[in-house]
Design a protein around this nucleic acid. Structure first.
Length: 443
DNA sequence: GCGTGTTTAACTAATG
DNA sequence: CATTAGTTAAACACGC
């Protein structure tokens, strides 16, 4: 069987989209997939999540929806991942351990007390009782697996996390790399591959704005920040795949115009009448490109979804206790954008807040609350996690991205926060390596 | 040479 | 089934 590079890649961990499929599947009120047995091990367990009752397999997913080829490719792909130990995990389970966790599936961790009786499994449909040793061994395997499973986030989401986690809300390319590798062990391998994708995403997507360095801050590369209107990119509440790409139409119009001009030069024929940009598109209170050190000049932006108004953007919303008003160094100031306070939180919590629908709830859809947003899944435990100073890396994976339920997190790890939370409340466990750069910007 | 940034193309998968 | 979002590869330019 021949595997394309793409297939081999997906076998390493799958794509975010499959996560979304999973989410979609679990939105039913009653969901009872057949037990997953492709790897010879499955756990069937009843659970209640968000008021809905589920009976689910290990992954909370009906594996029957995954073509057999995926399974076999997965098995092959595992071998191509150095250090990968995804031997017993299903494809979906390997990709989305955290969600499985968050949904209350039997995912105990080493050190966590769990009676064998609470973890009844079946092998190829045959029920079996696992000994405690079996359980612990498998738990260890799962734990290792998560470390190298691909996060269910798109590169756009990862970049956004990095930006949001930065005190100044802007990061360099290398800082983005570092952020991702620090947070997701999966990305410590095949760096050339995904880093190319990161660069492509930054350039290709209008939601990312390049901020030129000023002479007093020399260094390599520019800073990257989020377009202010791009905060509602994930307005559907499912933050794994955007339904609409953030588009700067004026920019696109200019590109089209330039393209037409080029064609005109080449063909000698006059280009078609170019409608004036923004002829029918609403113009927001956008920054004037002249006032910004931004390479992408036309910054008037329209989005398919209702964008926050200027008032909404400038109106400070109630902040969390740890929130700190954004100073004038905010890149959006530099861009001439209207600013709003952004809570200074940890990368993890920043990621959470980024995946939170809070800003949408307040500025776009007051009552919007996607039942299966990550925010919904973790919201209750999130605050506790921050208070506890929980270090996600100690938990060897990003399962905690979904769930930091202290009843699931090993007690031992819960009690040993890596770093005491600074007075600024910036973070509870993760120390960004680029903090020096960021703090330099503050000065 | 290397890192950064841009662009094009091909492809997969999700969505309407 | 067509469209779109996202991924990956690759070529190229630029600056240090």
């Amino acid at each position: 069987m021949m595997l394309s590079p793409k297939s081999a890649y997906e076998a390493q961990g799958g794509s975010p989209s499959s996560m979304q499929a999973m989410t979609a599947m679990t939105t039913g009120n009653s969901y009872s997939p057949s037990s997953y047995t492709s790897s010879g091990y499955s756990v069937t367990q009843s659970m209640t999540t968000l008021g809905s009752s589920y009976t689910t397999g290990m992954n909370g997913v009906g594996m029957g929806t995954i073509p057999p080829s995926h399974t076999s490719m997965t098995a092959m792909g595992m071998n191509s991942v150095p250090g990968s130990q995804l031997t017993t995990m299903s494809t979906m389970g390997a990709q989305h351990p955290g969600l499985a966790n968050s949904l209350g599936v039997g995912m105990a961790h080493p050190g966590q007390s769990m009676s064998p009786m609470t973890m009844q499994g079946s092998v190829n449909g045959v029920n079996m009782n696992l000994t405690r040793e079996d359980v612990l061994n498998r738990q260890k395997q799962y734990r290792r697996s998560y470390t190298h499973a691909k996060p269910p986030y798109s590169y756009i989401a990862l970049i956004t996390m990095a930006v949001q986690s930065s005190p100044n809300k802007m990061v360099t390319l290398s800082e983005i790399y570092q952020f991702i590798m620090d947070l997701f062990p999966f990305y410590r391998q095949n760096q050339q591959r995904w880093q190319n994708s990161i660069r492509h995403s930054l350039s290709f997507n209008d939601c990312f704005v390049k901020v030129q360095r000023t002479p007093d801050r020399p260094g390599k590369g520019s800073y990257w920040t989020l377009h202010p209107n791009a905060h509602s990119m994930f307005e559907n509440g499912c933050y794994l795949r955007r339904q609409k790409r953030f588009k700067c139409e004026r920019k696109a119009a200019m590109k089209a115009e330039q393209k037409a001009e080029n064609e005109e030069v080449l063909s000698g024929a006059p280009a078609g009448q170019q409608p004036p940009p923004q002829a029918n598109t609403p113009v927001h209170n956008s920054p004037t490109p002249e006032s910004a050190h931004v390479s992408s000049s036309p910054m008037t932006v329209t989005t398919q979804t209702p964008s926050p108004t200027l008032t909404q953007l400038t109106q400070p919303k109630p902040l969390a206790p740890t929130a700190v008003p954004v100073q004038s160094q905010h890149p959006q100031d530099q861009l001439g954008y209207p600013t709003r306070p952004i809570p200074q939180t940890s990368p993890m919590s920043a990621a959470m807040s980024m995946y939170s629908t809070d800003h949408i709830k307040t500025s776009v859809h007051p009552s919007f609350h996607h039942p299966f947003s990550i925010n919904s899944i973790i919201s209750q435990d999130h605050k506790l996690t921050e208070l506890k100073g929980y270090d996600p890396m100690q938990y060897s994976g990003y399962a905690s991205m979904y769930n930091t339920n202290p009843s699931v997190v090993p007690k031992q790890e819960m009690e040993t926060p890596a770093v005491t939370e600074p007075a600024t409340g910036y973070f509870s466990g993760y120390v960004p390596q680029y903090s020096t750069t960021a703090s330099t910007l503050q000065s």
